[in-house]
Structures are given as C-alpha cells and as structure tokens.
C-alpha cells in the first residue's frame, strides 16, 4: 500500500541573463496551465514577480547566456541556491544569437554598436560608466560556467515543452525531450 503523502510545495525561480526574454514570453504561453504549476510550486523569483533576493529554490529556469561579469556572478550564485538548474532556451544551451558576437573582437562589436552605427551622430562613443556591467570577451553557454542539470533547447522553446519539463520535475520525474519528441532548435 502506498501511503498518500502531501507533497511539500516546491520553490521555482526563473532568471533572465543574456537573452531577449522570449523564453519567458513562451513560459507565459503555457496559459491556464500555470495554475497547475502554481498548485505544485511557488514562483519565488522571476522577472514577472516582485521578488528581490534569490532564495534557496528547488528549480531554477535560467534564460540567456553568460555575457558579462554580472551574469557570471549571478549564475554562480544561482548554482549555489538551486537544487535543479535548467538551461532555458537556445541562448542558455548553445549561446544562439547572443553568441553571434563571438566571431568578432569585442572592440569591433562595441564600435559597430556605438561608434560606427549608421544612426549615430558624429560623436559616438562607447559608454563606460562604472555602474554598467562589463561585457566578457566571449559569450558562453551556462554549461561552460556551472553544472547544468537539464536543458530545454529552442528559440524560444514551445510552451508545451516548457510545461512538460516543469510538470515532470514538479512531480519528481525526469523528463526526456528526445523520447517525448519535443526537441527543437531555433
């Protein structure tokens, strides 16, 4: 006989690093199924909720790649706080569009955006205020900085895929995107 035990409500965080927030939009596309998620988990930190400090969480969905010193510190912090860290979307998994600047030296990238941009007036200059984050030379996916427990590729991942992965993890099962035929890049 299996005794029914009320499961502790899990804590869920979603974080937005070097990405376009498209993955978070896709997360919202799970529509009313977010109520199913809310029954099993509290969303304690996310760009769409009013959370401040990152608390200890069971699952962290991390969108975007590591592009700057700030992201680097952040992902190390998230790794410490999260039991399960999920790379969320193509940028987090394989750098995707954010990694397209990796083919050029960083200076060229800055110049293209701030100095030589067609829309610029004559005096374009690279912003260097101390409060701004410092871009790393190369954009790297999460897995090159920390151990990643699961990946959801896709640009953005389908809402169905996101819900499938979340629901499996929230019910203490391990999802398998290949077997579920939910793999997608781009």
């Amino acid at each position: 006989m299996v005794k029914y035990k009320k499961m502790r409500k899990k804590k869920l965080a979603t974080v937005w690093l070097g990405g376009c927030s498209g993955c978070h939009m896709s997360l919202l596309d799970i529509d009313e199924r977010i109520l199913d998620v809310a029954q099993l988990a509290d969303i304690v930190k996310s760009p769409i909720v009013d959370g401040k400090e990152m608390p200890d969480v069971d699952i962290a969905l991390v969108e975007g790649s590591v592009t700057s010193d700030e992201h680097y510190r952040e992902i190390l912090h998230i790794r410490k706080k999260a039991k399960t860290l999920i790379a969320f979307g193509d940028c987090a998994v394989m750098t995707n569009v954010t990694g397209m600047r990796n083919y050029f030296p960083l200076k060229e990238v800055f110049d293209a955006a701030y100095v030589n941009a067609v829309s610029n007036d004559a005096e374009g200059q690279v912003p260097d205020h101390p409060s701004l984050l410092k871009l790393n030379d190369k954009v790297v996916p999460l897995q090159e900085v920390v151990n990643v427990d699961f990946v959801i590729p896709g640009c953005p991942p389908n809402a169905d895929t996101i819900f499938y992965v979340l629901f499996e993890f929230l019910n203490d099962r391990l999802p398998d995107l290949g077997k579920a035929k939910k793999l997608k890049y781009g």
């Binding site: 998994v93 990694g99 083919y103 990643v148 990946v151």
Partner: peptide, 11 residues
C-alpha cells in the same frame, strides 16, 4: 536526441 553540445564551440 541531441539537446546540447558537449564540446566548446569554435566560433
């Protein structure tokens, strides 16, 4: 069944 790439990208 490729979900991520285990090798560093050459870029």
């Amino acid at each position: 069944g490729l979900d991520h790439i285990r090798y560093p990208h050459l870029f």
